[in-house]
Design a protein around this nucleic acid. Sequence first.
DNA 1: AGCGGAATAT
DNA 2: CATATTCCGC
Length: 281
Amino acid sequence: MREVEECSNWFSKWEEQLPSPEELMPLNQSLITPNLLAAFNLTPTQTPNPNSNTLLFTNSHPLKNPSLETPDSITDLESSELGGGGNSGDEPARTLKRPRLVWTPQLHKRFVDAVAHLGIKNAVPKTIMQLMSVDGLTRENVASHLQKYRLYLKRMQGGGGHSGGSSGLDSATDHLFASSPVPAHFLHPVRPNSEQFMPFVPVVVSGQMAVVSGQYRHMGHFENPYNVARQAHQQQQQQVHMMGTPVHKLVPSSYIEDLESATATTANGKKALTLFPTGDD
DNA sequence: AGCGGAATAT
DNA sequence: CATATTCCGC
């Protein structure tokens, strides 16, 4: 029975593409709306876990009180107005704008994985967003990022030398993208035939987030020679065997995931603290 | 009515 | 520059 063979073959492929537990697990981030965070100001069980991934936000908050200076200044906020009238207190959703999303390498990796799994064809903002299953991530966020990512891909195929004098192939801009290997199929016209898209297990858990105050401008420079060694070391992944099928990865799913908490800065007045998920992937 | 995608704005 | 927001064709 051929069908059986094909079937198993197919399944293997599918498995290959599954994100490893490590990839999945540490990867959830919950983007919490700042308001929410602010509103509650901290959740009871919220231990600032420096180890867990954090998604960064920029908190430019022009409006009222950017009160997240000191860790303990978590006190005003909800007490802001009371006697007022109108709609006091909650109903945060309205009128407040979401902070700028910061695409960390981890988040970007998720993005790339999602796109890879979907195949270029189906990779459109909404689907990508769903696959990523990052709480709070909007279609717009993804669309915007996707747009830029495409430019990056295009640039990359186009050839190396380009306008401007950019030497070679990186313009600081690309660093983020460079942190995640571009899957093969991205570059050439999709293989109309085999596989693609399977049930994906959205992992919806909750994580944490980090908020940065002030405007952005982050990691002005991470000339971090990616610690490959370190990763190799950490890369000790558990291999999962489902049904006795060895999971073997064709696609080196990205590396260079950790950068240290960078603090950036400098640019006059604008300070952005960008803490990074240090550590594990 | 909503999405995707380029263009444009912050 | 990195994201957000707008605009426009489906």
